[in-house]
Simulated scan of single mutants.
Amino acid sequence: MPDHIFLVGLSGSGKSTVGRLLANRLGWSFVDSDSLIEKTEGRSIPAIFSQEGEAAFRELEGRALARATRSSRVVVATGGGAPTHDAGRRVLADGFTVWLAVSPAAAAERLAAQPTDEPRPLLAGDPRQRLEALLESRRDDYARADASIEVDGLTPDQVCDRIVRLWEGDGSSAGDAIPGVAATVTTPGASYPIVVREGALADLGDLCRRIGLSGRAFVLTDTGSGPLFAPTALDSLRAAGFQATEMAIPAGEEHKTLATVGSVYDWLLGERVERSDFLVCLGGGVVTDLGGYAAATVLRGIPFVHVPTTLLGMVDAAIGGKTGVDHAIGKNLVGAFAQPRLVLTDPA
Protein backbone atom coordinates (compact mmCIF):
# COMPACT_ATOMS: atom_id res chain seq x y z
CA MET A 1 0.00 0.00 0.00
CA PRO A 2 1.19 3.59 -0.56
CA ASP A 3 2.60 5.23 2.54
CA HIS A 4 1.67 8.78 1.52
CA ILE A 5 -1.93 9.94 1.20
CA PHE A 6 -2.59 13.29 -0.49
CA LEU A 7 -5.86 15.18 -0.19
CA VAL A 8 -6.58 17.56 -3.06
CA GLY A 9 -9.45 19.87 -3.88
CA LEU A 10 -10.78 23.39 -3.60
CA SER A 11 -10.38 25.56 -0.54
CA GLY A 12 -13.28 24.72 1.72
CA SER A 13 -13.36 21.03 0.81
CA GLY A 14 -12.17 20.04 4.31
CA LYS A 15 -8.70 18.79 3.44
CA SER A 16 -7.03 19.95 6.66
CA THR A 17 -9.85 18.82 8.96
CA VAL A 18 -10.19 15.44 7.28
CA GLY A 19 -6.42 15.05 6.99
CA ARG A 20 -5.91 15.39 10.76
CA LEU A 21 -8.69 12.88 11.45
CA LEU A 22 -7.27 10.46 8.89
CA ALA A 23 -3.74 10.71 10.29
CA ASN A 24 -5.04 10.05 13.80
CA ARG A 25 -7.07 7.09 12.54
CA LEU A 26 -4.07 5.54 10.81
CA GLY A 27 -1.49 6.52 13.42
CA TRP A 28 0.40 8.54 10.80
CA SER A 29 1.89 12.03 10.73
CA PHE A 30 -0.05 14.96 9.27
CA VAL A 31 1.27 17.85 7.19
CA ASP A 32 -0.63 20.85 5.86
CA SER A 33 1.46 22.02 2.91
CA ASP A 34 0.33 25.66 3.17
CA SER A 35 1.22 25.74 6.87
CA LEU A 36 4.59 24.18 6.09
CA ILE A 37 5.29 26.91 3.51
CA GLU A 38 4.35 29.66 5.97
CA LYS A 39 6.55 28.14 8.67
CA THR A 40 9.52 27.73 6.33
CA GLU A 41 9.23 31.18 4.76
CA GLY A 42 8.21 33.08 7.89
CA ARG A 43 5.42 34.75 5.89
CA SER A 44 1.76 34.16 5.27
CA ILE A 45 0.47 32.76 1.99
CA PRO A 46 -1.21 36.08 1.08
CA ALA A 47 2.07 37.89 1.74
CA ILE A 48 3.97 35.53 -0.56
CA PHE A 49 1.41 36.01 -3.33
CA SER A 50 1.51 39.78 -2.86
CA GLN A 51 5.29 40.08 -2.75
CA GLU A 52 6.38 37.42 -5.26
CA GLY A 53 3.35 36.30 -7.24
CA GLU A 54 1.72 32.94 -7.88
CA ALA A 55 4.55 31.43 -9.93
CA ALA A 56 7.00 31.86 -7.05
CA PHE A 57 4.45 30.41 -4.64
CA ARG A 58 4.00 27.30 -6.81
CA GLU A 59 7.75 26.74 -6.74
CA LEU A 60 7.70 26.93 -2.94
CA GLU A 61 4.70 24.60 -2.93
CA GLY A 62 6.56 21.97 -4.94
CA ARG A 63 9.46 22.08 -2.49
CA ALA A 64 7.12 21.85 0.50
CA LEU A 65 5.35 18.79 -0.91
CA ALA A 66 8.69 17.08 -1.54
CA ARG A 67 9.80 17.93 2.01
CA ALA A 68 6.54 16.64 3.49
CA THR A 69 7.05 13.22 1.93
CA ARG A 70 10.62 12.62 3.04
CA SER A 71 9.15 10.52 5.84
CA SER A 72 6.85 7.58 5.31
CA ARG A 73 3.28 7.21 6.64
CA VAL A 74 2.24 10.82 6.12
CA VAL A 75 -1.14 12.34 5.29
CA VAL A 76 -0.73 15.62 3.38
CA ALA A 77 -3.44 18.25 3.00
CA THR A 78 -2.36 20.07 -0.14
CA GLY A 79 -3.10 23.58 -1.31
CA GLY A 80 -5.89 23.90 -3.86
CA GLY A 81 -3.49 24.38 -6.75
CA ALA A 82 -1.05 21.57 -5.91
CA PRO A 83 -2.09 19.27 -8.79
CA THR A 84 -1.91 22.09 -11.37
CA HIS A 85 1.88 22.27 -11.80
CA ASP A 86 4.56 19.77 -12.74
CA ALA A 87 6.41 19.82 -9.40
CA GLY A 88 3.21 19.11 -7.51
CA ARG A 89 2.09 16.36 -9.88
CA ARG A 90 5.44 14.59 -9.62
CA VAL A 91 5.09 14.32 -5.84
CA LEU A 92 1.41 13.33 -5.94
CA ALA A 93 2.19 10.54 -8.39
CA ASP A 94 4.15 8.70 -5.68
CA GLY A 95 1.23 8.39 -3.26
CA PHE A 96 -2.49 7.71 -3.01
CA THR A 97 -4.35 10.88 -4.01
CA VAL A 98 -7.97 11.58 -3.07
CA TRP A 99 -9.99 14.45 -4.52
CA LEU A 100 -12.42 15.89 -1.97
CA ALA A 101 -14.99 17.09 -4.50
CA VAL A 102 -16.98 19.95 -3.00
CA SER A 103 -19.45 22.17 -4.80
CA PRO A 104 -18.43 25.85 -5.02
CA ALA A 105 -21.58 26.83 -3.14
CA ALA A 106 -20.79 24.52 -0.22
CA ALA A 107 -17.12 25.55 -0.21
CA ALA A 108 -18.03 29.26 -0.12
CA GLU A 109 -20.41 28.65 2.76
CA ARG A 110 -17.77 26.77 4.73
CA LEU A 111 -15.13 29.44 4.13
CA ALA A 112 -17.53 32.19 5.20
CA ALA A 113 -17.87 30.42 8.55
CA GLN A 114 -14.07 30.40 8.97
CA PRO A 115 -12.98 34.04 8.86
CA THR A 116 -9.25 34.68 8.52
CA ASP A 117 -7.10 37.70 9.27
CA GLU A 118 -5.96 37.95 5.66
CA PRO A 119 -8.02 37.30 2.50
CA ARG A 120 -7.24 34.21 0.45
CA PRO A 121 -5.30 35.52 -2.57
CA LEU A 122 -7.19 33.56 -5.22
CA LEU A 123 -10.65 34.21 -3.76
CA ALA A 124 -10.74 38.00 -3.91
CA GLY A 125 -14.14 39.42 -4.81
CA ASP A 126 -17.09 37.03 -4.84
CA PRO A 127 -15.72 33.77 -3.32
CA ARG A 128 -18.37 31.57 -4.90
CA GLN A 129 -17.74 32.92 -8.39
CA ARG A 130 -14.00 32.56 -7.91
CA LEU A 131 -14.43 28.99 -6.67
CA GLU A 132 -16.57 28.16 -9.69
CA ALA A 133 -13.89 29.55 -12.00
CA LEU A 134 -11.12 27.69 -10.15
CA LEU A 135 -13.04 24.42 -10.30
CA GLU A 136 -13.55 24.78 -14.03
CA SER A 137 -9.87 25.49 -14.62
CA ARG A 138 -8.63 22.74 -12.28
CA ARG A 139 -11.21 20.01 -12.90
CA ASP A 140 -8.97 17.96 -15.18
CA ASP A 141 -6.10 18.18 -12.69
CA TYR A 142 -8.28 17.07 -9.78
CA ALA A 143 -9.73 14.25 -11.89
CA ARG A 144 -6.25 12.67 -12.13
CA ALA A 145 -6.61 11.63 -8.48
CA ASP A 146 -6.70 7.94 -7.65
CA ALA A 147 -10.14 8.38 -6.09
CA SER A 148 -12.72 11.08 -5.52
CA ILE A 149 -15.35 11.62 -2.86
CA GLU A 150 -18.36 13.93 -3.09
CA VAL A 151 -18.13 15.64 0.29
CA ASP A 152 -21.22 17.87 0.22
CA GLY A 153 -23.48 16.69 3.02
CA LEU A 154 -20.86 14.42 4.60
CA THR A 155 -19.28 14.96 8.01
CA PRO A 156 -15.47 14.91 8.26
CA ASP A 157 -15.70 11.54 10.02
CA GLN A 158 -17.76 10.12 7.15
CA VAL A 159 -15.25 11.39 4.61
CA CYS A 160 -12.44 9.90 6.66
CA ASP A 161 -14.23 6.52 6.74
CA ARG A 162 -14.52 6.50 2.97
CA ILE A 163 -10.87 7.39 2.46
CA VAL A 164 -9.79 4.55 4.74
CA ARG A 165 -11.92 2.07 2.79
CA LEU A 166 -10.51 3.35 -0.51
CA TRP A 167 -6.94 3.29 0.72
CA GLU A 168 -7.26 -0.22 2.16
CA GLY A 169 -8.57 -1.36 -1.21
CA ASP A 170 -5.68 0.26 -3.07
CA GLY A 171 -2.74 -1.88 -4.05
CA SER A 172 -0.05 -2.49 -6.58
CA SER A 173 -2.57 -3.17 -9.32
CA ALA A 174 -6.17 -2.37 -10.09
CA GLY A 175 -7.21 -5.97 -9.48
CA ASP A 176 -5.89 -6.43 -5.93
CA ALA A 177 -8.51 -7.57 -3.39
CA ILE A 178 -11.19 -7.91 -6.10
CA PRO A 179 -12.58 -11.45 -6.45
CA GLY A 180 -12.78 -13.01 -9.87
CA VAL A 181 -10.08 -10.98 -11.63
CA ALA A 182 -9.16 -12.94 -14.76
CA ALA A 183 -6.65 -10.39 -16.05
CA THR A 184 -5.43 -6.87 -15.51
CA VAL A 185 -5.00 -4.59 -18.52
CA THR A 186 -2.11 -2.16 -18.23
CA THR A 187 -1.56 0.69 -20.69
CA PRO A 188 0.73 3.75 -20.49
CA GLY A 189 -2.15 5.75 -19.02
CA ALA A 190 -4.29 3.28 -17.11
CA SER A 191 -4.60 -0.08 -15.42
CA TYR A 192 -7.89 -1.87 -14.83
CA PRO A 193 -9.17 -5.33 -13.87
CA ILE A 194 -11.25 -7.68 -16.00
CA VAL A 195 -13.59 -9.56 -13.68
CA VAL A 196 -15.06 -12.83 -14.97
CA ARG A 197 -17.31 -14.52 -12.46
CA GLU A 198 -20.80 -15.98 -12.33
CA GLY A 199 -23.04 -13.67 -10.32
CA ALA A 200 -20.64 -10.73 -10.68
CA LEU A 201 -23.38 -8.40 -11.96
CA ALA A 202 -25.01 -8.46 -8.54
CA ASP A 203 -21.72 -7.16 -7.11
CA LEU A 204 -21.39 -4.28 -9.59
CA GLY A 205 -21.93 -1.56 -6.97
CA ASP A 206 -19.44 -3.04 -4.51
CA LEU A 207 -16.82 -3.43 -7.24
CA CYS A 208 -17.30 0.18 -8.33
CA ARG A 209 -16.68 1.24 -4.72
CA ARG A 210 -13.59 -0.97 -4.52
CA ILE A 211 -11.97 0.71 -7.52
CA GLY A 212 -12.62 4.16 -6.05
CA LEU A 213 -15.59 5.38 -8.08
CA SER A 214 -17.92 7.89 -6.44
CA GLY A 215 -20.59 10.33 -7.47
CA ARG A 216 -23.63 9.17 -9.42
CA ALA A 217 -23.92 6.14 -11.69
CA PHE A 218 -25.45 6.52 -15.14
CA VAL A 219 -26.34 3.17 -16.67
CA LEU A 220 -26.44 3.13 -20.48
CA THR A 221 -28.02 0.05 -22.02
CA ASP A 222 -30.19 -0.81 -25.02
CA THR A 223 -33.70 -2.07 -25.58
CA GLY A 224 -32.43 -5.64 -25.93
CA SER A 225 -30.14 -5.95 -22.91
CA GLY A 226 -31.85 -3.48 -20.60
CA PRO A 227 -34.91 -5.53 -19.63
CA LEU A 228 -32.71 -8.54 -18.89
CA PHE A 229 -29.83 -7.00 -16.94
CA ALA A 230 -30.50 -3.38 -15.96
CA PRO A 231 -32.68 -4.13 -12.89
CA THR A 232 -29.88 -6.18 -11.30
CA ALA A 233 -27.27 -3.56 -12.15
CA LEU A 234 -29.34 -0.69 -10.78
CA ASP A 235 -30.22 -2.59 -7.59
CA SER A 236 -26.55 -3.39 -6.98
CA LEU A 237 -25.41 0.19 -7.53
CA ARG A 238 -28.10 1.58 -5.24
CA ALA A 239 -27.35 -1.00 -2.55
CA ALA A 240 -23.74 0.25 -2.60
CA GLY A 241 -24.93 3.81 -1.96
CA PHE A 242 -24.83 5.19 -5.49
CA GLN A 243 -27.58 7.28 -7.00
CA ALA A 244 -28.27 5.38 -10.21
CA THR A 245 -30.37 6.12 -13.28
CA GLU A 246 -30.78 4.40 -16.64
CA MET A 247 -31.11 5.19 -20.35
CA ALA A 248 -31.85 2.63 -23.05
CA ILE A 249 -30.87 3.34 -26.65
CA PRO A 250 -32.42 1.43 -29.57
CA ALA A 251 -30.72 -1.93 -30.12
CA GLY A 252 -28.82 -2.62 -33.33
CA GLU A 253 -25.73 -1.60 -35.29
CA GLU A 254 -27.78 0.86 -37.33
CA HIS A 255 -28.11 3.01 -34.19
CA LYS A 256 -24.36 3.19 -33.56
CA THR A 257 -24.24 6.78 -34.82
CA LEU A 258 -23.33 10.28 -33.77
CA ALA A 259 -27.05 11.02 -33.57
CA THR A 260 -27.40 8.38 -30.84
CA VAL A 261 -24.33 9.76 -29.09
CA GLY A 262 -26.05 13.14 -29.16
CA SER A 263 -29.06 11.67 -27.38
CA VAL A 264 -26.74 10.25 -24.70
CA TYR A 265 -25.11 13.68 -24.30
CA ASP A 266 -28.59 15.21 -23.93
CA TRP A 267 -29.42 12.71 -21.19
CA LEU A 268 -26.18 13.15 -19.26
CA LEU A 269 -26.06 16.93 -19.52
CA GLY A 270 -29.76 17.20 -18.73
CA GLU A 271 -29.00 15.31 -15.51
CA ARG A 272 -26.14 17.78 -14.83
CA VAL A 273 -23.48 15.10 -14.95
CA GLU A 274 -20.23 15.95 -13.14
CA ARG A 275 -16.66 14.76 -13.72
CA SER A 276 -16.91 12.79 -10.47
CA ASP A 277 -19.85 10.74 -11.83
CA PHE A 278 -19.42 7.65 -14.01
CA LEU A 279 -21.10 5.77 -16.84
CA VAL A 280 -21.86 2.04 -16.83
CA CYS A 281 -22.04 0.63 -20.36
CA LEU A 282 -24.32 -2.40 -20.05
CA GLY A 283 -24.85 -4.32 -23.30
CA GLY A 284 -23.15 -5.69 -26.37
CA GLY A 285 -20.48 -4.14 -28.53
CA VAL A 286 -22.69 -1.33 -29.79
CA VAL A 287 -23.34 -0.15 -26.22
CA THR A 288 -19.73 -0.46 -25.04
CA ASP A 289 -18.33 1.21 -28.18
CA LEU A 290 -20.85 4.04 -28.21
CA GLY A 291 -21.07 4.46 -24.44
CA GLY A 292 -17.31 4.51 -24.05
CA TYR A 293 -17.07 7.22 -26.69
CA ALA A 294 -19.78 9.28 -25.00
CA ALA A 295 -18.02 8.94 -21.64
CA ALA A 296 -14.64 9.83 -23.15
CA THR A 297 -15.97 13.05 -24.65
CA VAL A 298 -18.71 14.45 -22.43
CA LEU A 299 -17.21 17.09 -20.11
CA ARG A 300 -13.89 16.14 -21.77
CA GLY A 301 -14.10 12.72 -20.14
CA ILE A 302 -15.77 10.94 -17.21
CA PRO A 303 -14.93 7.49 -15.79
CA PHE A 304 -16.77 4.51 -17.24
CA VAL A 305 -17.25 0.80 -16.61
CA HIS A 306 -18.00 -1.84 -19.22
CA VAL A 307 -20.45 -4.65 -18.47
CA PRO A 308 -20.59 -6.64 -21.74
CA THR A 309 -23.59 -8.94 -22.17
CA THR A 310 -22.68 -10.69 -25.44
CA LEU A 311 -19.86 -13.12 -26.17
CA LEU A 312 -18.24 -10.81 -28.73
CA GLY A 313 -18.48 -7.91 -26.30
CA MET A 314 -16.88 -9.98 -23.54
CA VAL A 315 -13.88 -11.15 -25.57
CA ASP A 316 -13.31 -8.14 -27.82
CA ALA A 317 -15.37 -4.95 -27.81
CA ALA A 318 -15.16 -4.17 -24.08
CA ILE A 319 -11.39 -4.71 -23.83
CA GLY A 320 -8.59 -2.45 -25.02
CA GLY A 321 -10.17 1.00 -24.90
CA LYS A 322 -11.67 0.97 -28.41
CA THR A 323 -14.62 3.37 -28.45
CA GLY A 324 -16.49 4.94 -31.33
CA VAL A 325 -19.39 4.99 -33.73
CA ASP A 326 -20.06 4.36 -37.40
CA HIS A 327 -20.11 6.92 -40.20
CA ALA A 328 -21.98 6.80 -43.50
CA ILE A 329 -18.67 5.97 -45.22
CA GLY A 330 -17.87 3.00 -42.96
CA LYS A 331 -17.87 1.38 -39.54
CA ASN A 332 -15.99 2.71 -36.52
CA LEU A 333 -14.57 5.72 -38.35
CA VAL A 334 -15.32 8.17 -35.53
CA GLY A 335 -13.97 7.42 -32.07
CA ALA A 336 -11.20 7.55 -29.52
CA PHE A 337 -9.09 5.25 -27.40
CA ALA A 338 -10.23 5.54 -23.78
CA GLN A 339 -9.77 2.92 -21.08
CA PRO A 340 -12.56 1.81 -18.73
CA ARG A 341 -12.01 1.65 -14.99
CA LEU A 342 -13.36 -1.91 -14.87
CA VAL A 343 -14.66 -4.61 -17.20
CA LEU A 344 -17.19 -6.87 -15.49
CA THR A 345 -18.23 -10.08 -17.21
CA ASP A 346 -20.97 -12.25 -15.74
CA PRO A 347 -21.33 -15.40 -17.86
CA ALA A 348 -24.29 -16.70 -15.84
Rank of each mutant, 00 (worst) to 15 (best):
G88V: 01
T116L: 14
V286L: 09
F49G: 13
G79D: 12
L299V: 09
V273E: 06
V159A: 14
V298Y: 12
L134G: 00
A87T: 05
A259K: 13
I37N: 14
L60M: 14
R73V: 02
D277V: 00
L220S: 04
I5A: 05
T257Y: 01
L213W: 10
R73D: 03
S173A: 12
F49I: 14
R70Q: 15
L290T: 15
T97V: 05
T345D: 01
V280E: 07
L111T: 02
A66K: 14
G301H: 03
A93K: 13
A328G: 11
L201F: 10
S16D: 13
G321Y: 09
A239D: 14
S72M: 04
H4R: 12
A182N: 08
G42N: 05
T223L: 07
D146E: 10
W99G: 07
A295Y: 06
R272P: 00
R25V: 07
A190G: 04
V287F: 10
F242D: 03
A200F: 12
R138Q: 07
P193F: 02
D140W: 02
K322Y: 11
G12D: 12
R341A: 01
T245F: 05
R130C: 01
C160G: 13
P188R: 08
L312E: 10
P179H: 05
L7M: 02
L234T: 11
E52S: 15
